[in-house]
Design a protein around this nucleic acid. Structure first.
Length: 281
DNA sequence: AGTAGACCTGAGTA
DNA sequence: ATACTCAGGTCTA
């Protein structure tokens, strides 16, 4: 095991983990979290001025990439503030230290299928049961955890099995998309970006525009992908005086407004709106 | 092209 | 108590 550090001015484990981009983490006492992705685990500990990341020695580069540590968030926040939009300014202040993760593609794809018309605590429960049922048991830093299941294990189960885990009607989508992933991998999205990538992702059963944007942003580094869910639609109405109800139009409104990094700013806006929905700004 | 209804589930609210 | 609403939506008709 090794430990590397990163200044916490632009790395807040709490904001990064609790903003709804990942569902596989758990608090370990005070200011510490066990974070899981694919078959790997790491431990985050927050101190006064820095965050300590502990993981297997071979995984250091993986987690530096996972937490997006090469990206300059000081510049991004400056860019956000320069728009002069009050709610974005507040959101960036509130979520300071939130970083966009670079997640495992298959895990992200299936997780956000489960996320539709669902709430975060239940999504976490669904996914943790999924991993316990089909994943591999491992141990890191004294903690037991389950890996995200392989596509082979996922694809051999049917809808009824996923229903038994409590996924509800999403069970059919998980079963079908797992099979498609096992058969084709990501060949249909290979080399694609932007709107083409989004369109290719919506070809997986259970993936519409919103989930395709989430996967693009969280697993394909598409920083302009701007997911529009109920919270963002509410933000659009309440904070931007928007009248459109078509979520694709709302998506275009924000992408045109906030440009190539719109998706990153979306995450701050989503986190702020969900946590502080009653706030004046 | 655009829109209503159906769809699992469990926590929260009236 | 019991019903109703809502949650990081998608699909079908």
């Amino acid at each position: 095991m090794i430990t590397f550090t990163f200044p916490n001015e632009y790395f807040s484990p709490k904001a990064t983990l609790e903003c709804g981009q990942t569902f596989r983490f758990s608090p370990c006492g005070e200011s510490a979290w066990l974070v899981l992705c694919a078959d790997k685990a790491c431990l985050l500990k927050e101190y006064a001025a820095e965050v300590h990341v502990s993981c297997e020695e071979a995984d250091e580069q993986y987690f530096r990439g996972y937490f997006d540590l090469e990206t300059d968030y000081a510049a991004l926040l400056k860019e956000a503030e320069a728009f002069g939009v009050p709610v974005l300014f507040e959101a960036v202040r509130f979520g300071r230290g939130l970083r966009i993760l670079n997640q495992d593609k298959a895990e992200c794809l299936l997780s956000f299928i489960v996320s539709q018309q669902n709430n975060i605590p239940r999504i976490k429960g669904n996914l943790s049961r999924l991993c316990a049922a089909l994943g591999e048991k491992k141990r890191f830093a004294g903690y037991d955890y389950y890996t995200f299941p392989s596509l082979e294990r996922l694809a051999e189960r049917d809808e009824d099995f996923y229903r038994s885990l409590g996924l509800g009607y999403r069970a059919r989508y998980v079963a079908a998309s797992s099979k498609k992933l096992l058969e084709e991998g990501f060949s249909s999205v290979e080399g694609k970006t932007g709107a083409e990538l989004k369109r290719a992702l919506t070809a997986y059963p259970g993936i519409g525009n919103k989930v395709a944007d989430c996967i693009s942003l969280f697993a394909f580094r598409e920083t302009a992908a701007f997911p529009v869910d109920t919270w963002i639609a509410r933000l659009y109405r309440e904070n931007f005086g928007g009248a459109e109800t078509d979520r694709e139009k709302i998506n275009r409104f924000f992408v045109e407004k906030f440009g190539p990094n719109a998706g990153i700013f979306q995450q701050y806006l989503f986190y702020y709106k969900r946590e502080r929905g009653d706030a004046a700004v």
